[in-house]
Amino acid sequence: MFDGGELRLVLLKLIADEPRHGYDLIRAIEALSGGAYVPSPGVIYPTITLLDEMGFIEEQQSEGAKKRFAVTEAGQAHLSEHADRVAALLARLQALGEHRQRADAAPIRRAMSGLKMAVMERFGGGDASQEMVHQVAAMIDDLAQKVERLK
């Protein structure tokens, strides 16, 4: 999904938005991508360590065992220098989520294809009565109206 430098910028931006620990970062990226991308801890934690060593983030006091990090002045300056790139990376994550939402319409496309096949099978031979044709047309019209009324 990202090369190392890109992931560093995304994590730095998320930490700048609010202090976070590793699991928070994983969930934030998952949310931004609509669940389409969930980085592994094996990618996140080494990147957090690198950001800390670079002086871009620092550990904050936190309750429990989880280390929470906040952005430093140097990290904020780095983000400002790369603001356009950060915006593009976040847009990439959001586009991935939007694509996933569109892709979730696959069951509807499958069902419509099944309906089309059933109608073609039943009425393709020309042996159906006019009454049956009107009945099926009425069922399809009824369903179309119900779909239009969904909220």
Rank of each mutant, 00 (worst) to 15 (best):
H21C: 11
T49R: 04
H82T: 10
L7C: 12
R8Y: 05
H21R: 08
A118R: 15
T72V: 14
V136K: 02
Y23G: 09
A118I: 14
K146T: 07
L11H: 05
G75K: 03
H134A: 12
L50D: 08
A70P: 06
L9E: 14
S33D: 03
S113P: 00
A28D: 15
K116S: 07
G97F: 00
A74F: 12
R27Y: 13
A95E: 07
T72Q: 12
H21D: 14
I140K: 12
L14F: 13
F123K: 07
G114F: 00
S129N: 11
S113Y: 03
A106E: 09
S40N: 12
T72P: 05
D127K: 07
I26Q: 14
L93T: 03
G34L: 08
S40G: 08
G125M: 10
A16R: 00
H99K: 12
A106C: 02
S113D: 08
R85I: 00
R102L: 14
L9C: 10
A87M: 13
R109T: 04
K66M: 05
G42Q: 01
L12T: 10
T72G: 11
S80H: 13
L25K: 11
V43M: 03
Y37C: 04
K146W: 05
V71G: 11
L9H: 01
L14H: 08
L90G: 10
H99S: 15
G4H: 00
S62W: 06
P107I: 05
Q135N: 07
L115I: 14
P39F: 05
I26D: 11
Q101K: 15
A144I: 13
V10Y: 06
A77R: 15
I48D: 02
A103E: 13
D127W: 07
F123Q: 06
L89Q: 10
G42D: 14
K67L: 14
